[in-house]
């Protein structure tokens, strides 16, 4: 059953659709009000990344870099070395997509206090097609030492993640999508970096999800419940540092795990979960996500269905993993 301590909205099917990146925009403005060292940099994508809301309020602390993602990261590192807290915004395919070396050396190895927003991540970007659908960003960020990797599930959590990222010292990558997603969490829903949250408790299987797949996992759990299968649902918003304790505890309780993410299976959140469980408490696992291929143009819902990122795919994976559990 839904964990009441999580204070999710009462009926997830009536959730209001808001893009998670809106949470970034609101969070950044709130941070800017509290701390004058917060600065924002952007690569010619100010409105769609929602950093435009910060620009409106604090034009003197907004830096337009033009279409130059590598430059943006190293400039931010320089500003951090002088005490600023730079938030750098672009689409995930470009940042961290084309400035990985700068993120690795100028920011992470140097431990500069830079926060990186990757917007428009995932297959649900839609009609822009494969070039603009970041499906590898979790894999290429989570392997870099010192970098925290966060994937908020909705706009409310996106705002909390942005604020928490700004309050801690050190590099953070924040992943957001383009489309409206059901806003299932509330102000009261707990959010702590490094702490996965159990949104639903069940005894048969654990579904570990992040981003838009958290909603899909909750829908899948409801459907499974009708068939007598009780699923635990974990919102694993912090890919790094991963919450080993919560994952191992859930694996021990349910002895079967399905992971779900809008990202390549190779190297993604599911891989991170498997790294933990294979060492500490091996159980059968199935991975829901993009199967080693590039996206294409289409409507977001069409793409999510074609590329296997829906509650139906989770239900199928649960049934398969339960077979393996026997």
């Amino acid at each position: 059953m839904i964990n009441p301590e999580m204070h999710l909205i009462e009926n997830i099917h009536k959730a209001k659709g808001i893009p998670s990146r809106n949470g970034y925009g609101h969070g950044l403005v709130k941070l800017g009000e509290k701390n004058k060292d917060i600065v924002a940099l952007c690569c010619d994508l100010t409105d769609s990344t929602r950093v435009g809301w910060f620009r409106e309020k604090f034009p003197e602390r907004f830096i337009e870099v033009g279409v130059a993602e590598q430059n943006m990261i190293s400039i931010a590192a320089g500003m951090s070395s002088e005490g600023k807290i730079p938030f750098v915004s672009s689409y995930a395919v470009f940042s961290p997509g084309r400035n990985w070396d700068q993120i690795r050396v100028s920011v992470c190895y140097s431990q500069e206090n830079v926060k990186i927003q990757g917007a428009h991540a995932g297959i649900s970007v839609g009609p822009d097609g494969a070039t603009h659908q970041a499906l590898e960003d979790i894999a290429i960020t989570r392997c870099i030492p010192n970098l925290i990797v966060l994937v908020p599930c909705d706009a409310v959590e996106g705002e909390k993640a942005t604020i928490k990222a700004g309050e801690l010292k050190g590099p953070v990558y924040l992943r957001f999508g383009r489309e409206k997603v059901p806003t299932i969490t509330t102000e009261k829903t707990p959010f702590e970096i490094g702490k996965a949250e159990v949104y639903r408790k069940g005894k048969d299987v654990t579904i570990v999800a992040c981003g838009i797949m958290v909603f899909e996992a909750l829908v899948a759990a409801e459907e499974l419940n009708k068939e007598g299968i009780e699923a635990t649902v974990i919102n694993n918003h912090t890919i790094k540092p991963i919450d080993r304790e919560t994952l191992v505890m859930a694996a021990k309780e349910t002895k079967a795990v399905v992971t779900a993410e809008e990202h390549q299976i190779q190297g993604g959140m599911g891989s991170a979960v498997a790294e933990v469980l294979s060492e500490e408490f091996p159980v059968p696992i199935k991975f829901v996500g993009i199967q080693n291929r590039f996206g294409e143009s289409g409507e977001p819902e069409e793409l999510l269905e074609k590329f296997g990122c829906t509650s139906k795919n989770i239900i199928k994976a649960v049934k398969e993993v339960l077979e393996n559990k026997k």
């Binding site: 590598q70 320089g78 070395s81």
Partner: peptide, 29 residues
């Protein structure tokens, strides 16, 4: 490496990053 030795301002190796870093420092100044 900036963290290895006091007096080293920036980490450098992969070429081209230091000038952007310097521009960030100059802008902040």
């Amino acid at each position: 490496h900036n963290l290895a030795l006091p007096g080293i301002e920036n980490t450098a190796g992969p070429l081209g990053q230091g000038i952007s870093f310097a521009a960030g420092v100059a802008l902040t100044a």
